[in-house]
Design a protein around this nucleic acid. Structure first.
Lengths: 132, 132
DNA sequence: GTTGTAGTTTATAATGATTCTAAAAAGGTG
DNA sequence: CACCTTTTTAGAATCATTATAAACTACAAC
């Protein structure tokens, strides 16, 4: 199974629970945004198998560390993750508290002119807040 | 005092505690980043007067709502605020967990091509993560 | 100034996301 | 199968933030 490789790459053994998490995260080509709580609910609904929060946190964080998931920088009480790990940006609808993808072509190229000695740019993320 | 106006504009009566908070936040032209906890410590050190956390949270949030402070979108357990409310962007040093200002001229103009019906862009914020 | 009331401050409790823990369960190797 | 390590899990612990309710204060009306 294709998920086993992802898990091993992330330093995780392929267990039943982790494979179920993979199925929800990576089954579809369509990427999406989620919080740990969203994911826990989805798992409970789709698999009838409750997976404990600790396991979900562990697995998601391992994927994030390996680059299979990305955190979305946003001020919210919960952490948002994105299954789309390509460089892209987001609208955040302040009223509905919803994230919307901005494809890379929706934003002109971003040119960071300042450099910090000894440091490399690891990511450039744009958050566009929307009001009415 | 110049702070009284800021407080009244934010819908707050000028009290001793709030004026002390203003003095720390707005005394200097040099802007800075802080968390609520940073601010609480600064207050205790500089004024010898402990102000309760609830008051600090209330005051900071009122200023943020009015636009005298800005939240910095970043994934961290604490919320970061900025006394620089002009449109500008940030480096975030992942190892040292420190924010560094990027002046507007350090980043080329950002052109958001996508539009969402009925929504207005309220802010555009860029976070550049730095690693070694 | 005194008084009244609505707004404030405060310590403390409550909340909620996340992390930790330790015991039970499962993976993987010989 | 037997062993040892990793994993899962429920529940406890942590920590930032928010709510509460009682004591206090600003300030307007008198």
């Amino acid at each position: 199974m294709k998920y086993i490789e992802k898990l091993r790459n992330s330093g995780l053994r392929p267990t039943k629970q982790r494979l179920q998490i993979c199925e929800i995260l990576f089954e579809t080509k369509k990427t999406f945004h989620f919080t740990i709580n969203d994911l826990a609910i989805k798992i409970k609904d789709q698999t009838k198998n409750k997976i404990s929060l600790a396991t979900i946190y562990n697995t998601v964080h391992a994927f994030e560390k390996k680059g299979y998931l990305k955190q979305i920088p946003i001020n919210s009480s919960q952490t948002y993750f994105d299954t789309n790990t390509t460089e892209h940006h987001h609208f955040y609808d302040l009223k509905e508290e919803k994230l919307i993808d901005l494809e890379n072509c929706d934003v002109g190229p971003i040119n960071i002119k300042k450099k910090i000695d000894g440091k490399k740019i690891k990511s450039v993320e744009v958050l566009v807040k929307l009001g009415d």
